[in-house]
Design a protein around this nucleic acid. Structure first.
Lengths: 142, 142
DNA sequence: ATTACTGCAAATACTTTGCATACCG
DNA sequence: CGGTATGCAAAGTATTTGCAGTAAT
């Protein structure tokens, strides 16, 4: 059985000038399939059985090259570790204070990118982070 | 010479039910005076000469109790380390990709706090993070 | 006296670096 | 062959924990 995202992952890698090694394809495939904003460790654990020789170093190397190539965006809503997100549409992130999951939030961003703030700073990227209790945990608490 | 923020720091601590030890007063005083969103290490280094016995553990303990008491807010714009902010007015943060400084940005927040997102998540806090080139670094590059 | 706070040292968590091996054009 | 990628081991950085000493009520 073949993951339908494999070809898409390859295409994205080529389009961004990144060599499509098996590790990089699998990592990007995972990010495209499981939209969970994983940490390096989550990526590693998820793929360890499929790629038995995979190392954390390669995961970190891959994340770095993806970030440089613009394939990923960093998600810093969790203070401990760096999470990453392959979703390209502008959106916000919500972290549940109860279960820790990070959700995508449909949200019209202010879009200051390319503009200057009142203070004269040139904006290149913007991120909106929300925290609270997710709908799942609200139900469970009732 | 006495820092005029000392009394304000004491008041804030009392108002939030936190015992005003000398370490806590000095740390809050520093946060109120130097609006630089410092990391634990920056706080430690800034106060080490004044409080020779100060330990990193106490800085971390103090940050934690301040966060719990609602005196501080976490600023996660820097992926490496946790920065904190004592400023209570709603505002955004801007990080310069060139010099690394974190600035306060005057900005009307969307204010979703207390409301539910379209997805049904209950929002308790929101943070807007911007990145780019600060006005200082723009001038220097010219 | 009891409870809370401080701070040293050790442990842990996350990430980076050095380097030898393996892969690819 | 020559450059790039991989991955093990070790180092580095940020934070947390265990615990004994200290201060405060």
């Amino acid at each position: 059985m073949k993951n339908p995202m494999t070809d898409k992952a390859k295409e994205i890698l080529k389009a961004h000038g990144v060599q499509p090694s098996i590790q990089r394809i699998k990592i990007l495939e995972f990010l495209l399939t499981q939209r969970i904003h994983p940490s390096a460790d989550e990526i590693y654990r998820a793929l360890a059985s499929e790629l038995p020789t995979l190392s954390k170093t390669t995961v970190y190397n891959t994340i770095e090259s993806f970030l440089k190539a613009g394939i990923l965006k960093p998600v810093r809503i969790d203070s401990r570790e760096l999470r990453v997100d392959a979703f390209t549409e502008p959106h916000a992130h919500f972290r549940c204070l109860n279960c820790g999951r990070v959700y995508d939030i449909e949200f019209e961003m202010v879009n200051l990118v390319g503009k200057h703030t009142k203070e004269g700073h040139l904006v290149e990227s913007e991120e909106l982070y929300l925290e609270g209790i997710c709908s799942d945990c609200q139900k469970k608490r009732m």
